[in-house]
Design a binder for these strands. Structure first.
Lengths: 252, 252
DNA sequence: TAGATTGTTAATCGATTAACAATC
DNA sequence: TAGATTGTTAATCGATTAACAATC
């Protein structure tokens, strides 16, 4: 698994301050950021664990909030360059800024959802999207009965107008919520519209150009993994406490 | 990461035929099974890649269908014990049976969904659930306006009757589709109803007893990871082709 | 200065992969 | 038997973790 982001600069150039960041680290960095944001929100209160009154938080404290080992947290943060003060800790607000910048979450990424069935409609109204910098700006469908209707405040556009609609809205991320049978055509449309980052909820493998990053959320796989452990439980093969703590890792 | 399933038997007992299976392997085993099932379905046709006419498939062929390295596939299958014939390959139908048995997917796992908003309703009708051995048997909500209404053929039950409803339907797996604020209470209800495997769609960490396995689908995280790579792309830091190929790995 | 905590190094662990002996 | 392909071993790779020197 070479799940790292290539360092900047042409071969031979001096390494940028930002080293290659493993994918697992990027995932945890987003958790640290959200934990900090939440802690900052609650900070007005009193007895909550989080940054102390001087706005400082130690790796031990932040790690506890995020549910990880403090050594891992420090290692993760070291990919951003030096952010803390030895003997003191991290400045919560400065760390949040550094995380936002590193993760690119200081800006907004308009989203297109293709497929406005039950799942697509639910995603269109999902508060975790708009609220976190991912406004759903375009909805696409091919069903004439759906085109023109408004879902979560956004009108459904004919899939034939995908290119114009995505460009007009500066769409950056695409979400596929079509049935499996339509998913390949859907991703082709998104790619044609210039979308280079795609989240796929449909089962099955999709073919995309090399420069398109494709992630997949596989709901059936999640249930399969739960069922596997459940089936062992019945036969007494898994003692209580072996519950697994990590999501599945599968090619999209 | 000790993502393995403990071998059967008390300490000192002879090892069972089934060794500890890494979580990543279990995930791929489900893929192999589904790829085989699909190939078997298409086999009536002619020129499709898949088991040959004698019903045999080699590790190389199956690996190609699943999109993995053949060495990895053989290693994965070896956790099931010897299933192939050297010089020949694997018997497709026998392998499917072995996979079904090992994964526990020869039986049905009734599901309860708690939270019947847009997402919960969409999941209730998701074809990948019922069609793959996960019938949605109970829907729970606390909103009087929803209780008694029928979604995807299933009536919504008052959350207060969760224990009775889940027992009556022999529910095994729970899905949390509530807002974040209600998620901890929701999982507590499921645990009280005897559910020991839970898939959580709400953001945030949930506390559960040790013998409850909890998986989380983090939609915002998926977008964060896409956005991270997208943000690098703009500054030209990521050459085309570094698109990452693996979903995120995060504690639930 | 003494105490605390970071940033980093080295050790550990596990998963992936290549190679090949076993064997059909 | 000769060719093919599995099952497994050993090498490789990367991620996690413990430990500690640097330093505020």
């Amino acid at each position: 698994m070479a799940q790292t982001v290539a360092p900047a600069g042409p071969a031979g150039a001096p390494e940028s301050a930002t080293r290659a960041i493993p994918e697992a680290t990027v995932a945890r960095l987003t958790t640290y950021l959200h934990v900090l944001i939440r802690a900052a929100g609650t900070a007005a209160g009193a007895d909550v664990v989080g940054p102390t009154d001087d706005g400082t938080i130690s790796s031990e404290e932040l790690a506890a909030l995020a549910g990880v080992n403090s050594a891992k947290l420090r290692k993760d943060l070291s990919y951003l360059g030096s952010q803390g003060t030895r003997g003191v800790g991290y400045d919560a607000s400065g760390l949040m800024d550094a995380l936002k910048t590193a993760l690119g979450s200081h800006r907004v990424y308009p989203v297109v959802i293709i497929g406005c069935g039950h799942l697509g409609s639910a995603l269109a109204g999902y508060p975790g999207f708009a609220g976190r910098g991912y406004p759903v700006s375009v909805l696409l469908d091919s069903d004439p009965a759906k085109i023109g209707t408004v879902i979560a405040g956004v009108p459904v556009t004919d899939i034939g107008e995908a290119v114009a609609a995505c460009h007009a809205a500066d769409v950056v991320i695409g979400v596929i919520a079509t049935p499996e049978i339509a998913a390949q055509a859907a991703v082709d449309v998104l790619v044609a519209a210039g979308v280079r980052s795609v989240l796929n909820f449909a089962p099955g493998q999709l073919r995309v150009p090399d420069d398109v990053q494709l992630r997949r959320v596989d709901l059936a796989l999640e249930l399969n993994l739960l069922a596997f452990h459940e089936s062992r439980r019945g036969s007494g093969q898994v003692p209580a406490g072996v519950a697994q703590r990590q999501p599945a890792v599968m090619p999209p």
